[in-house]
Amino acid sequence: MYTQAIDTDPTLRTSAASDDGAAEDAFLARIADDEKIEPQDWMPEAYRKTLVRQISQHAHSEVVGMLPEGGWITRAPSLKRKEILLAKVQDEGGHGLYLYAAAETLGVSREQLIDALHSGKAKYSSIFNYETKTWADIGTIGWLVDGAAIMNQVPLCRCSYGPYARAMIRICKEESFHQRQGFDIVRALCEGTPEQKAMAQESLNRWWWPTLMMFGPHDSDSTHTGQASAYGIKRISNDELRQKFVDVTVAQAEFLGLSIPDPALRWNPARGHYDFGKIDWDEFWRVVNGQGPCNEARMNDRISAFEEGRWVRDAASAHAAKHAARAVARAGALEAA
């Protein structure tokens, strides 16, 4: 689903001051040449830390992102929609795994990453702290939230860290299905009864602004964009991506006959882009810092899913140990014979 540019670790601002200067220069030259950095290569500590934070935030977002949609699997309006939603939610779990595996190549363990999420130390995308009140929200999430995610993720396929770039290529291929299935849900509602269309509009009204917030703070307020772009991790700035998203989405909303809830939205021929209204950053920071509508519920659900699944993991361990012991016993019996 998505990683959000919320960088709150002040220790990273001093970046490479403590690293070996010559090695750092050679490293930056490789980045400038568009070379991929691989796990066994030398890298500055700040690069490693930035990646661990970003990739793990991204992985957590995929996993927590299953929760707002998961609740609708049993309530999907048809068998076809149910199967599609199941497949989509399963993809999100897979995306989480690709990303955890990429983060682990940087020397952190899965356990550390999951602990950081469950203890509240690690962030995930603020968008998943909003409620999914209606079936239309499942459509809107696919259409807008996954649409915004694709905007952000396509440039990450070219990021400088090999394992992250390769995970992103796989994710982007699958994400396109997510966006289209969402658009298809919204479109079906818009072509349905007036009540169904009103449901789609009401959903767009609630999700529009939180979706724009997904791109993260304005470039002028984002302390890490400079560092991350020097490292070839972030290729396009938050504001550029947000603008691109608004520009393509307006036409899609017009096609659907939905209106975007922003009175300031208008085409600016001089800029060649849509102008849009002010984002409520107070709301953004409230949600990021734990006061969103569902922060607590999401974490409780995540932790109980992890705890309730423990017996399955333990059973798999016991099964593997049993088979290993039997193999040893068989080999011993053969030797004795």
Binding site: D314, A320, A321, A325
Partner: peptide
Amino acid sequence: DSNAKSLAPT
């Protein structure tokens, strides 16, 4: 079997 030592999932 019952004495087989199993790894913690982590």
